[in-house]
Design a protein around this nucleic acid. Structure first.
Lengths: 158, 158
DNA sequence: GTACTTTTACTCGGATACCGTCTGTCCGAGTAATTATGG
DNA sequence: CCATAATTACTCGGACAGACGGTATCCGAGTAAAAGTAC
């Protein structure tokens, strides 16, 4: 039971896009270079973010990605759901029904607890947004590093 | 990101052991028959429960398993940890450090949120015990099914 | 200079290979109760 | 009848095969801007 590393990639990709100048676009290739991750796989992740309405994509030359929603409106939960899918952590394998043959397809005893636990988990992810993470980034990093990142962005967008 | 089905097996195994007459023992083979799961794999799970101090095992003829702790003291969290291990759901792959070469091995921005979310998740699992699940079982099942289970237990222990 | 074609630089989505983890099996040990054996 | 040996019925833990899902790569297709070409 491990979280996909793709979620982490997606979050940081969004963080980079947050620093993007207004209306500018960044290609998947450029993004992958900044994050040091597989270009093709990141492309796949970006498509999921597009389908979830988080990111806007434009094909063709000078195309690329940029945020569609405001960073304040994008929660970590949204990113998680876009990348990981909607299936819940726990799905009964039907042991309870099998133990003593119960006629009614009763939800297994564990489902209630597990669902509640998952909701509690998701609630925390919903409280944090890309914007709040981005402000953390501003506090954490040195001004030097940030300007280096911004100038890289400026020179990369076309 | 899916929970191991082994956790479910372990929980129901403990539920069966809860109904066991005082001091009686049940073999892994018998348990697996009742749960309709793989005998050898269940054996592996039971060993983990033993190592976690949840279950007591006795080798040799007339040996088997029985609960070591009181059902009230065994939380779903305990079972989860015993089966799934202690590693956390999320571990940073170091993208943040790689983005702009940060000297200090700073924990990535996501870690805080993810850890908090995991704690919230675990907190729910800690509130539910095997005993509370067992009382749910008593309410859910028909008296007929329960006596059938008990008589099976009586005829199986030796 | 305008209309058209070609090139270029992207995204899109499917097919597929790789790899780690979870599931499941097998086997040789160890242990204890039971049974068999010998005197 | 008692002591000892053999058998039986378990757990223990490692090694390993199989299944599955996440990671990663490749390719053909679509799209739009830019560059080239013709008149």
């Amino acid at each position: 039971m491990n979280m996909k590393s793709g979620v982490e990639q997606a979050v940081y990709a969004l963080l980079v896009l947050t620093r993007l100048p207004r209306q500018a676009m960044l290609s998947g290739e450029a993004l992958s270079q900044q994050l040091h991750v597989s270009p093709t796989y990141l492309q796949k992740l970006m498509r999921k973010l597009v389908q979830a309405g988080i990111v806007l994509s434009v094909p063709g030359a000078k195309g690329g990605f940029r945020l569609q929603a405001s960073p304040d409106d994008i929660t970590i939960y949204d990113v998680y759901m876009a990348v990981e899918g909607v299936k819940s952590l726990y799905r009964s394998t039907g042991i309870f029904e099998g133990m003593l043959q119960l006629k009614d397809n009763n939800a297994c005893l564990l489902s209630d607890v597990m669902d509640e636990a998952e909701r509690a988990w998701q609630a925390v992810l919903k409280r944090q947004s890309i914007a709040s993470l981005h402000s953390e980034l501003n506090e954490t990093c040195s001004a030097d590093d940030l300007t280096k990142l911004d100038s890289w962005l400026k020179s990369t967008i076309r």
